[in-house]
Design a protein around this nucleic acid. Sequence first.
DNA 1: CTGAAAGCGCTAACAA
DNA 2: TTGTTAGCGCTTTCAG
Lengths: 335, 335
Amino acid sequence: MGASIKDVAKRAGVSVTSVSRVLNSEKYISQRILEKVNQAIEELNYSPSQIARSLKKQKTSTIGIIVPDLTNYFCSTILSSIEESASEYGYNLIVCNIAENLEKELKYLHAVQEMRVDGIIIMHQKVNQRILSFIESASMPILFSCVRSPLPGRFSVLINDYQAALDATEYLIGLGHRRIAFLGGDLGDVTAGYSRYQGYLDALHKSGIPLNHDFIKFGNYKLESGRVMMQEILEQGECPTVVFAASDDMAVGAMNCILDYGLSVPEDISVMGFDDSLIAKAVRPMLTTMQQPVRELGRISLEYLHTLIEDPDQPDCRDIYLPHRIMERASCRRL
Amino acid sequence: MGASIKDVAKRAGVSVTSVSRVLNSEKYISQRILEKVNQAIEELNYSPSQIARSLKKQKTSTIGIIVPDLTNYFCSTILSSIEESASEYGYNLIVCNIAENLEKELKYLHAVQEMRVDGIIIMHQKVNQRILSFIESASMPILFSCVRSPLPGRFSVLINDYQAALDATEYLIGLGHRRIAFLGGDLGDVTAGYSRYQGYLDALHKSGIPLNHDFIKFGNYKLESGRVMMQEILEQGECPTVVFAASDDMAVGAMNCILDYGLSVPEDISVMGFDDSLIAKAVRPMLTTMQQPVRELGRISLEYLHTLIEDPDQPDCRDIYLPHRIMERASCRRL
DNA sequence: CTGAAAGCGCTAACAA
DNA sequence: TTGTTAGCGCTTTCAG
């Protein structure tokens, strides 16, 4: 094995304390010791053990992050921006991809707890009883990012999904649409599933547009899911003039389905997405979508968690809502 | 703080050794002790400290993974498949996103070394001298995934990028194309940059097609980069009949540029990508591309690293090449 | 089958 | 300024 602090001390002819001191660049170390220690470190190619340090200090500078699905563009972008801030604050990230598997999530939750991470970020919405009770009894701060906390009084940073979906739908109505299809996520998913659906519903209601249940489908946020739902709608007979999807991926899936049917977007059917992930600008026509402020969401999530770690008794301000915004591009036309 | 093994021992009225034994489900523990310990664990809501365990066992069950850019679809997909295998093998992943920043890479390399990860996977190609010497003197196994090792005799799992680019170009030639543009990555990037470029060059040469330097551009693998390069080519006057890009993202960028110019793909210009990442199927026309076997690449990378960790003295088989394959879709036409 | 005790590599009183 | 020493929470001989 590699050299330990003891070896360095011996080699430098000083005490381990002195070595520790230079390692942590404390004050009150003589130039002489500093040099000798640094030389010994060099010669031994010494690398201090973060894990011994963690054990002693009861703090790991590590945070666990539970991601629903790494292959989802929105997730990996948020992850990337969380990572950026984490790196600035000196945290390392344990990434837990649960691939929509609650058992795996629970396993990971226990794993990061045993690793004594300083905090946990959860980007996943659906929970079961065991996960809930884990969250309740966890000893480290847990923050929900981009989803609403399943438990009241917990911390989360996200957009107001209900309002965003409502705004999006009203935007579409403002464009003259009345036959508006909705491609939702799982209703059990309170944030993106349920809230966005409610926003859609209420917008229609406010404008006195009757509900057409053939225009409402639920999927899993993925590309393929959007395609399948759109196909169902198309096969059903009556056509919407626009389809509003609860994720960009589903919107693109739907758009491709429309295109593959030989129809055009937005001439025949308009399409609106949600997220403004990179794919929105990668497709043609470019997707009109509801933007989530990805970089801010990530950055603020991390900063918030950081303050929670430093001072676990944060009194107020348990939820932080960031502004959403419509990105008008080419996939929605005025009727 | 939470309960320690000592607290559990006290509560259960047994020695810490016994607690440790049931924690590790060793043999030779009486039913009586087992029950008492489990009950104490339950009552105290005890969670064993992985970091104390790591310190003692000199092994963390953690691996560090250096990713060039999380917002790149190919990367996050590989990451996801590595994660899947890692989870099966009981490893936790420290994800290090270097965002093309070598200083950050070096910082992360040292960080994971200090965290005493059991192994490191590097998915990044470009290195500098300090990174090189880190790799040379590192005490844990390091494996390169999807890129060729910058040092001879190191371990890597990847496809044969040269051959793949050659095959792709020959496929295009077979389709009747002779004016074939190439959108490459950084030439300093030996794997994807240099090798793919060489493959392109050699394929042209073998078919006696003269080089047109106006048809050769280098970018950074990203969408926007593909768009910019394509625009340069289009503005230059003479038009290629097909453009072969060293990444799907660049291919899509190029395709969008062509579309935005009012031309069609593949009628006016064909486009071929590289990677077969999710975006290839998300765009219209669907991208014809050179497929990298993403899931296998990820799985085998992890399994290989695992064997290296278990037995660091692996003698042979330092590089593993996986098969590539052309995915014929709709973006390339026969001339 | 069970327990006592040493020690993994480090930090932080406390002394000097 | 510097050094001695007692743990942090666990595993692992080694005895019993």
